[in-house]
Design a protein around this nucleic acid. Structure first.
Length: 249
DNA sequence: CCGCCCACGAAGGGATTATC
DNA sequence: GATAATCCCTTCGTGGGCGG
């Protein structure tokens, strides 16, 4: 398989992931409590959400709200720039200031590449759209979701989760899927992989990351990781070899 | 709307081997 | 030695159906 070129930068409540020459498809998942702005730099992708399937091609952008379940089908080689912004930052910051912060972040993040004009031009309307998206009220499901997001590595069966959400396991599965778009277990696995991605950016070995994120062993970890990320942990580590994070300013 | 039951498929668990 | 891949059996999560 041809390895995609990946880039990752984070800081000030924002994360930027660039993916070049990728042919990876991603199964159903969500980006937890962040807004995601996706910019198609080259090629095209098929984005599937609960609102349907839409093809986005070079020069087009999309917005995903927090916890929006979606999948990506790669029909060809594509280049995607994903900008994730903390929910609080989006909802609690004045639009003009937010736009300034985001464009500053983009300029800092992509130092050696000229940011295409269309990205900066669409930024304002995309951020406005984010701020206008309705945010759900807090429920018991939300507190469980928060627990699973913060501590995905803790062994927690469906009965334990139901107890946390003050409901039955049958109702939990239905309600959770309705609100989050994934079953509790799928959500837990996804968060474990997400946490593992962060740990893989440190000096920890694959086996250490596997145990630290709640997987029984590295064999099981590799299977789940590859299914969600599209790369094995080692390939991922290699692809993100030049990882850096920006100092807070 | 919620709880329960049940069948089925996916995930978990364990062992082993291959590869670098 | 670390990591990746595969196999096989067991366990459990999930979806559908049903009833209160």
């Amino acid at each position: 398989m041809k390895m995609p070129e990946l880039g990752y930068l984070c800081g000030n409540g924002m994360e930027l992931v660039t993916c070049r020459q990728s042919t990876i498809s991603y199964p159903l998942h969500n980006h937890v409590s962040v807004f995601t702005l996706g910019f198609i730099m080259d090629g095209f992708i098929e984005l599937v959400t609960d609102k349907g399937t839409r093809t986005y091609q070079k020069g087009e952008a999309f917005v995903l709200g927090p916890y929006t379940p979606h999948s990506i089908n790669a029909r060809s080689c594509y280049e995607l720039l994903s900008l994730c912004i903390d929910k609080e930052l989006v909802t609690q910051t004045d639009l003009e200031l937010l736009e300034l912060m985001v464009s500053k972040f983009l300029h800092q993040a992509i130092k050696h590449t000229i940011i295409e004009n269309w990205i900066l031009k669409t930024l304002h309307s995309l951020l406005l759209f984010c701020q206008m998206l309705p945010i759900q009220q807090e429920t018991n499901i939300d507190s469980l979701r928060e627990q699973l997001e913060l501590y995905p590595e803790i062994p927690c069966c469906i009965e334990d989760m139901a107890a946390l959400a003050l409901t039955s396991k049958y109702n939990l599965i239905r309600s959770f899927k309705k609100e989050v778009g994934l079953t509790p277990h799928q959500f837990q696995i996804q968060n474990r992989v997400r946490k593992a991605q962060k740990l893989l950016n440190t000096s920890a070995s694959v086996a250490e990351v596997a145990l630290a994120t709640g997987f029984f062993d590295q064999s099981h970890f590799i299977r789940c990781f590859e299914k969600i990320v599209g790369l094995t942990p080692t390939e991922y580590k290699r692809a993100y070899g030049t990882v850096s994070s920006m100092p807070a300013s």
